[in-house]
Amino acid sequence: MGAVYRFLLTPRWLAVSLLALLAVPVCVFMGSWQLSRFEWRVNEHRTAAQDQRKVAEAPPVPLAKVLPDPRADVQDDDANRIVSATGSYDTAHQLLVPGRTLDDRNGYYVLTPLRLSGGAALPVVRGWLPGSASAAQHRGTVPPAPAGTVTVTGAMQYPETTESPDVDTSGTLPSGQLGIISGASLVNLLPYPVYNGWITATHPAAPLKAVPPAEAPGSSLDLKAFQNLGYTGQWFVFAGFVVFMWFRFVRREAEARADAALGILPGDPDGPDDGPDTPEAPLTPGPDGAEAPAEHDPTPATQAS
């Protein structure tokens, strides 16, 4: 080590270097831990997506295996599961769900309660149609539901909430329309018990178009995953910043000590400042014979008239 850097062996600089030496691995460890949390969340999301895909591709199961009774809740493992139910459509209480988009087009869902043998009804979204729900109601152009006993196959869906996309919570919809698909919103509109979950028909009759199953709540990467990724970058930046600042402080200290050894004061690379040169005043004989600086009369001489 050169003589200029011997100050690194002083107690103060040994403490600074030790602190930096400890801070770097701590920052790297924390960044690696945050990265592992992000990877864990990504793997969990990938696994959940694969499980849901398997559920959606599985053969239909009876509704009773998913919702034993109208008061039962849809379980996470049953989201988007294909179920089958047998009953008859209650066309007298058919509802339209406005403001729903499909393929970037605005339209509405056609929801018809399916009365089961026990008396309760399963909400069935028979399909989607483009245009205005109010106009379709006025013209009476909504395709009627099949009459008689039918067996419906569809994907089980969670009840919608006020945070679900495209829902209407204004409370100003006209009669015959529904803003949120859930048992809580239907219980006051239908004169019989309603299942809490609902299904979207897999094979609707033309011109209705099938409504794709909604993504189950919590199945997508949430904000916490991206927070972990952001914290990962921050910790690694902190580690690099510690190393950068240590080298910068060492260099400044070395330069300051080198300048001091050359007699250069801080802020003055040319050495000590003796001030500007001033001409010396001429010496004149004093009253006792000794030479003394001539007095300078600041008053300008005036020309005699």
Rank of each mutant, 00 (worst) to 15 (best):
F247S: 10
D268V: 10
A260G: 11
D270E: 14
A261D: 09
G171M: 07
I181E: 00
L190S: 10
S219I: 00
F244I: 04
E163Y: 09
P165F: 06
D259R: 15
L208D: 03
I199Y: 04
V167E: 01
G233H: 05
G197Y: 00
T200K: 05
G263H: 02
W198P: 09
D268Y: 12
V211P: 00
P282D: 05
W246Y: 09
A256S: 14
D273S: 11
E255Y: 09
P279F: 12
P279W: 05
P279I: 06
F238G: 02
W246L: 14
T169A: 15
Y231K: 06
A260I: 13
A261G: 08
L190R: 11
V242W: 03
D270Y: 08
G230A: 15
T232F: 15
E255T: 06
D273C: 03
G183T: 03
D168Y: 07
A184N: 05
P279M: 11
E215V: 12
Y231A: 11
E280Q: 14
P174S: 14
L283H: 01
E160C: 03
L221I: 15
L190C: 10
A214Y: 00
R252C: 09
R248G: 06
P174V: 08
L223W: 04
L173I: 11
V187F: 12
R251N: 06
D277G: 12
L262K: 14
S220F: 02
G267C: 11
N188C: 02
L265T: 02
A281D: 14
H203P: 00
I181A: 01
G267I: 02
G197E: 07
N228P: 07
N196C: 04
Q227G: 10
A261W: 07
A206L: 11
T169I: 08
Q177L: 12
D168G: 02
W246R: 11
S219L: 04
F236Y: 09
T162R: 09
D166W: 15
T172F: 00
T172D: 10
D270C: 01
